[in-house]
Amino acid sequence: MPTIVVEVMPKAELLDPQGKAVAGALGRLGQTQSALANVTGVRVGKRFEISIDGEADADALAAVRELADTVLSNSVIEDVVGIHVQDAPSSAVA
């Protein structure tokens, strides 16, 4: 059963308070962990894993693209930044 992954991010030009809060925490960690000292920003988005019956062919991808544009994202505030077929399932449910 293939899985199609959809990734959605807040629009680049909009403030992302969630990312800002995470970046703030990393900044505080960076004072003690030098590996984090060069982090300059964080943005938080969403990843959807859509399981489908049948083949992840062009038709299936087109249907998911439609879903991504109309339901999974709101084009006023977000961009769909990626749609791809997942190579291997992340987990198998018996």
Binding site: P10, L15, P17, Q18, V76, I77
Partner: peptide
């Protein structure tokens, strides 16, 4: 109403979080 496209624009998280 914005999600249903009856009104323009959208609402995001308050800037101060």
């Amino acid at each position: 109403l914005t999600e249903a496209h009856l009104l323009d624009g959208g609402l995001i998280r308050n800037e101060q979080g």
